[in-house]
Design a protein around this nucleic acid. Structure first.
Lengths: 128, 128
DNA sequence: TTCTAACTACGAAAGCTTTCGTATTTTCAT
DNA sequence: ATGAAAATACGAAAGCTTTCGTAGTTAGAA
């Protein structure tokens, strides 16, 4: 039985995003990506990824010298977990409240709005 | 000029939720509420609220012996900030992706879905 | 007035995250 | 084979959050 995905910290999420986007990667690769947005030392990145492995967030293939790390939880799974947490901690559990805040017309494009509307239509259909 | 609302921690959010719901309150009151969900000492609650005041999240009226604390940031303001952070850190900035995750049919009631649909309708109207 | 209950102030421990320096190991080109 | 480059391992410092114990203060009842 698979346990629930753990709460990633901010630095851990930075790593996860890169792994989700690019698939299994070396520390060097992840680090280079991180450096685009953040000035941090190589051993810091290494340590974070080692800790994540200890925590059971990542697995690694140590057959080669450059260890290859992979995520143990799907992106959607983790997103759902973070969303649930925010929902509980800040929106009193109301998804509608959260969604309405998120759909700030200033920031949401018409295309995205259409996409969401389609989703609602689909859900309506499946319900009947 | 008003500065941006600060990042509340988990324990700080617990306090904020109570203050948002009930308005300016004493430590005693907040603490009693917290105790419903969490076993924690009185001085812990006090300390958290004092720290929040130092950070500029709360203000307090010390004229009476029982200090009365009030939030310095609106609920919606803080929710938006937390949402933006989640959006960036876990959803690549796509509100649509976030909303579709949030609208898990398993958990979202038909009433809430109707509410969101209405919101979309209103936004459509205002856009034209 | 005096004692007690309840409050605030303060400091510090414990736990977690983030960071990096140093040591060790491995690979590969020369 | 040997040295340089690059990787991993490890430990520990620094910073933040959370927690609580203790001390000092104030208000109000007896």
């Amino acid at each position: 039985m698979k346990t629930k995905p753990l709460q990633p910290t901010e630095a851990e999420l930075d790593v996860l995003r890169i792994l989700w986007e690019h698939g299994p990667s070396t520390v060097r690769f992840v680090h280079e990506r991180l450096r685009r947005h953040k000035d941090v030392g190589y051993t810091t990145t290494l340590k974070i990824m080692q800790i994540m492995t200890d925590k059971g967030m990542l697995e690694r293939d140590t057959r080669r010298r450059q260890h290859v790390y992979a995520t143990l939880y799907q992106e959607s799974e983790t997103q759902q977990m973070l969303l649930d947490r925010l929902l509980e901690s800040a929106f009193g559990g109301s998804a509608a409240k959260l969604v309405m805040q998120a759909l700030d017309p200033q920031r949401t494009s018409p295309a995205e709005l259409r996409q969401i509307r389609r989703l609602l239509d689909d859900m309506e259909k499946e319900r009947s």
